[in-house]
Design a protein around this nucleic acid. Structure first.
Lengths: 132, 132
DNA sequence: CTGTATCCCCAGAGATACTG
DNA sequence: CAGTATCTCTGGGGATACAG
């Protein structure tokens, strides 16, 4: 029964391959931090806990949906804590855990690099566009 | 003429807002490095130049299309150089520029962090899943 | 070997409206 | 205020075929 066998084999191979990839630590971290909003939330929380609404204000451009979604991920991964204060209205604070703060330090390195070298990159980009 | 005015205002506001955001250096860098393939290519080139095909082999899972596309971006931004050796068959080598090497150093910090702490994150994730 | 051109699909992200 | 639930739609990215 050759029908579909080729594509099935490919699908199978791909699955095994994906499983292999999924076991690489740095790729796993990439899946977490190679995400705009994750980086921005961690940066926003760098200097203290913030409420949901404060985060929304600080991180210009984030939709309410993406913010909540990102916070859920970070909470699940033990990078931020979520504290609910039962009052009216409800108050929810988010704060970096030790692990989260540690990761943020590393990300801060990236931010510093950006501030030092982004201009150069833009310059290269412009030069490249000019002669093309 | 109130018709469409509200949505037009919103669209206008969004454009201005996007323009504002686009001027932030760290966000600009995020647009570059918050990309799986960019990180992986830079990592692959960390210890020397590689040919197109070698990159393809080293970076498991990258499609030919995404590899070329990523390399074009990196070249445009002055992070890698592309050297064509006219022969049969053609040989093309890619190598980090000084700027690219510098950025890679910072990214390496992320990789190191991943190797140290990814297990902890996975543990947190599992614990969180267990009690939900 | 290296790279371009096409087609196509679906996950991701925004918009909107509603609940505790 | 904080969060959930849907709907929609685009564009990123894989597969494929072809070219220098």
């Amino acid at each position: 029964m050759p029908t579909m066998t080729a594509s099935q084999r490919r699908a199978r191979a791909k699955d095994e391959f994906d499983a292999f990839l999924a076991s690489c630590p740095s790729r796993q971290l990439l899946d977490v931090v190679a995400n705009k909003w994750v980086c921005l939330v961690l940066a926003a929380l760098a200097d203290g806990s913030l409420r949901h609404g404060e985060l929304r204000t600080r991180i210009a451009g984030v939709s309410q949906k993406m913010l909540t979604q990102t916070l859920r991920e970070l909470e699940r991964d033990g990078l931020v804590t979520r504290t609910v204060t039962a009052s009216v209205p409800v108050r929810v604070d988010y704060e970096l855990t030790d692990l989260g703060r540690d990761l943020q330090q590393v990300l801060q390195g990236l931010k510093d690099w950006a501030e030092r070298n982004m201009a150069q990159i833009l310059e290269n980009r412009a030069a490249h566009a000019a002669l093309s």
